[in-house]
Amino acid sequence: MIIDLPSTTTSQVNKKLVELRETGGAVALGRVLTLVIVTGDGTEVEKAIQAANDASREHPCRVIVVASGARQAAPRLDAQIRIGGDAGASEVIVLRLYGPLADEGAGAVVPLLLPDAPVVAWWPTDAPDIPARDPIGALSHRRITDSAAEADPIASLQQRARSYVDGDTDLAWTRLTSWRAVLAAALDLPPHEPVTAATVTGAADSPSTDLLAAWLASYLDIPVRRVDHPRGPGIVSAVLERPSGNVEIVRPDGKVGSLTQPGQPVRRVSLQRREVRDCLAEELRRLDADEIYETTLGGLDKIVRGEQQAEQPVDAGVSS
């Protein structure tokens, strides 16, 4: 069910929510958090809502979308409430702010926050330089950005490292979960030798490639070379050097990787790029500081840029 409330106020939105709860039986007691999505008033709104709806099946929540419209317009707040099948396991409130109100997202959000529930802010694109100092970010326990969705992903990642505050995270980091799990599992198998160096290859504009290299440099305390691949997609390979032979994962097509290591048969592992909804659901599982991500950001200065790898045939795909 979708209810439109044009030219309204937050008090009227709250009143309508209470009315819907009393007449339709929809209750907020099962909501575990408030997810605030900050975006422009464009096509990305529906994509972000769909991802949040899918994630809410694991984390029932109230979703508040703050969509800033034209700043030259007259001050106006248009709201929309979605419940039932149009909201997954959540209730969605879309706030479209125009004119001077476009910069007052935090003021519109506060009256609609669930009482005594954590707040998570998510910027699908165009995140502020310092999320923790943003008015909505200051309200939040967790702040989710996505360097890969920015105009300059690598510069955005460097900015995330400079501005990190406990509670910050990045979906470019979350996309690495499968890669980190495969590499950690490979090192658990014999021979149990130290890794002496590593090389990570990926698209030049893939922040996840930088983060994987920084993670290896930080936690293995080894020199790591970051090599650009002319086409990608995303991370193409990771090679860990050991005395008896290398541990190597190669993913040329952005979907399936091959794991090679001494004394073991070649294994095919699923490394398909994760959907935003899956990354978002993973991030909503924790509300404390991600210490591994923080340490990894500190390792970005440790990686060494290598020469571009010669182009080899790969399928085109998106960065991961």
Results as ranks from 00 to 15, higher is better:
G88E: 00
G88Y: 02
S90L: 03
E91H: 10
E91Y: 04
V92T: 08
I93Y: 04
I93R: 06
I93M: 08
V94H: 08
L95I: 04
L95H: 04
R96N: 03
L97E: 01
L97T: 13
Y98Q: 10
Y98P: 13
G99H: 05
G99V: 04
G99Q: 02
P100W: 06
P100L: 06
L101I: 02
A102Y: 06
A102M: 00
A102D: 04
D103F: 14
D103A: 12
E104S: 15
E104R: 15
A106C: 07
A106R: 13
A106F: 01
G107T: 09
G107I: 07
A108N: 10
A108D: 09
A108T: 12
V110C: 08
V110F: 10
P111H: 09
P111R: 05
L112M: 07
L112P: 08
L112C: 04
L113P: 04
L114N: 04
L114F: 01
L114S: 08
P115R: 11
P115A: 15
D116N: 14
D116C: 08
A117F: 07
A117Q: 14
A117E: 09
A117V: 13
V119Y: 06
A121E: 15
A121T: 12
A121R: 13
A121V: 15
W122H: 14
W122R: 12
W122I: 02
W123T: 12
W123M: 08
P124T: 02
